[in-house]
Simulated scan of single mutants.
Amino acid sequence: MEEAEIIRRVGELRQEHRDLDAEIDALAFDATTDQLQMARLKKRKLKLKDQITALEDQLIPDIIA
Rank of each mutant, 00 (worst) to 15 (best):
E56W: 01
E5I: 08
K47M: 15
Q58C: 04
E12N: 12
Q15A: 13
T32D: 14
K47A: 14
T33P: 05
Q15L: 10
L27M: 15
D19Q: 10
E2S: 15
Q35I: 01
G11H: 03
K47T: 13
A4W: 04
T33V: 01
A28P: 01
R14H: 10
T32V: 03
D57G: 10
K42R: 15
M38A: 06
A26T: 06
I6V: 15
L59R: 06
R44P: 03
D62P: 06
D50V: 03
D19M: 05
A26Y: 03
E23Q: 15
I64P: 03
L46T: 07
I7F: 03
I60G: 02
R9A: 11
E56V: 01
E23W: 00
I64K: 14
L13M: 07
E16K: 14
A31H: 09
A31E: 09
H17S: 11
A65L: 04
K47W: 11
L20K: 11
I24F: 01
T32P: 02
L59T: 07
I63F: 03
K42T: 06
D30V: 12
L13A: 11
H17G: 07
K43M: 11
L46M: 11
L27C: 09
R40I: 02
E56S: 05
L27S: 06
T53Y: 10
E5F: 10
K49Y: 07
D21M: 10
I6F: 06
A4K: 15
E23H: 08
K43S: 15
L27E: 03
K42L: 05
Q58W: 00
L20E: 01
Q15V: 10
D19N: 11
L55W: 03
A54N: 09
K45F: 00
I52Q: 06
T33R: 00
Q37Y: 02
M38F: 00
R8F: 04
T53E: 11
R18G: 04
D30P: 10
R14E: 15
Q51F: 06
Q58E: 13
T53R: 14
M1W: 09
D62Q: 07
K45Q: 15
A26C: 07
R40E: 00
Q37F: 02
L46S: 14
T33F: 00
Q37S: 08
I52Y: 01
T33G: 01
L41C: 09
L13R: 02
E12T: 10
L55F: 04
D34I: 01
A65P: 14
I52H: 05
I64D: 04
D34C: 03
I60S: 04
R14K: 15
A39T: 08
R14Q: 12
I63Q: 09
L36N: 15
L20S: 05
R14W: 06
Q35T: 04
A22D: 11
T33K: 00
R18E: 12
